[in-house]
Amino acid sequence: MHELGIMTGVMASAREAAEGAGAERLLGVTLSVGEMTEAIEDALHFAFEALCEGDSYFEGAQLTVNMIAPKSRCLECGNEFQHDRFHLFCPACDSFATELICGRELQIDSIEVDLPDDEEESGACPST
């Protein structure tokens, strides 16, 4: 869809969280993306690389995208099953009355950051 727009939002959230933690640099971002959304994995990577280029805070950062396969539960027989984007009926009882359990995720799972390691354990240092 508009992976560049999505990734711009991801980068802003990642930067905010990383800076909030006092990080000097962002090393990586991990996303979960459901296959039932309109976001394409390749386009997300392309947008990420384009946005990292020339930005010293993001330079060299890695993007990991976990694609989530859709899964539904049958409301008639309770069967839980994986499926593709097109066939959502229950393979056990052929019912069309099913609900999606996962597959529409668009989430930032975590980030990896580089924290300054000059912590000299000021003040309440327990050693000695």
Binding site: I6, A18, Q107, I111, E112, V113, D114
Partner: peptide, 15 residues
Amino acid sequence: MPQHIDLKQPILDKN
């Protein structure tokens, strides 16, 4: 020092 930070934040959270 690399550190892992869990966010579990929806990408379209603001929207």
